[in-house]
């Protein structure tokens, strides 16, 4: 009886829990990002080497961090989905992957835009940019597989397997790309990595990192709520949640 009831209650409970979190996450993300970015843009001193172009760091580094972080999170939910067969975890893949892909795109784009004044070219086969590009392909692969099947459950499980295969490969790809880069270009490009940052720059960066973490959480919350609704659209609780009130006749 409980085993039968359990999965039915799960979606609704998770939906409500996420609903309780969402406004707090979104609100704090907005506040933290505003503080971090305004501080970074207006008050942090400009860099003695790169001038003001370094201010891209306040979005580039956080988005790069959480593009990787989101992939790891997705792989963990994929493992949970495969081992314990929890449907909410399967849907979390569909919720995390687009957010991670957009973060990867942002990291890639800001990296390229930063590269233009620094290297004189929009695209340099820099190790970090290259591995971000590959990460974007991996995200697109997971999403494409998730939505390729007519049966949503099969798609979710197939995407879970792929996400796990991917997460085993990500460190190998990362290492191989860095190694390849050192082979072909020498250690010339370390402009993204500053050995030590002045605290006036580091503190706003840390605040933006926190802001991106909260933003990632909020976006995943929003999409997971949508995914739960989409999958359980025929259940009465969704109608009670979204539908018009029971009409009197």
């Amino acid at each position: 009886m409980w085993k039968w009831l359990h999965p039915y209650a799960k979606g609704e409970a998770t939906y409500r829990l996420l609903g309780a979190w969402l406004p707090w996450l979104a609100g704090s993300a907005l506040v933290t990002l505003t503080v971090g970015l305004v501080w970074g843009m207006l008050f942090a001193p400009s860099d003695y080497q790169q001038g003001d172009s370094y201010r891209i760091i306040f979005i580039h580094v956080p988005s790069a961090m959480f593009s990787m972080g989101a992939y790891t999170a997705m792989a963990i939910t994929a493992l949970i989905a495969l081992v314990w067969q929890i449907r909410t975890a399967e849907w979390a893949i569909a919720a995390i992957a687009p957010v991670g892909a957009v973060l990867t795109f942002i990291a890639l784009f800001t990296g390229a835009v930063w590269g233009k004044p620094m290297w004189g070219t929009w695209w340099e086969w820099d190790a970090r940019l290259t591995s971000q590009l590959i990460l974007l392909f991996l995200y697109i692969g997971v999403l494409a597989l998730y939505y390729a099947f007519t049966d949503a459950r099969t798609g979710a499980k197939a995407a879970s397997v792929l996400a796990l295969v991917g997460v085993v490969n990500v460190p190998i790809i990362h290492f191989s790309v860095y190694w390849w880069n050192s082979l072909h270009q020498g250690a010339t490009i370390t402009k993204f990595e500053k050995p030590s940052m002045a605290p006036e720059m580091l503190i706003p960066l840390l605040i933006s990192i926190l802001g991106f973490a909260l933003l990632t959480g909020a976006l995943v919350c929003q999409r997971l709520r949508n995914e739960i609704l989409k999958q359980e659209i025929h259940r009465p609780w969704v109608h009670a949640q979204l539908g018009v009130a029971e009409q009197e006749r």
């Binding site: 597989l145 792929l162 790809i173 790309v177």
Partner: peptide, 10 residues
């Protein structure tokens, strides 16, 4: 090919 080619990179 979309799924596999990125994994072949190393």
């Amino acid at each position: 090919s979309l799924l596999l080619l990125p994994l072949f990179i190393p």
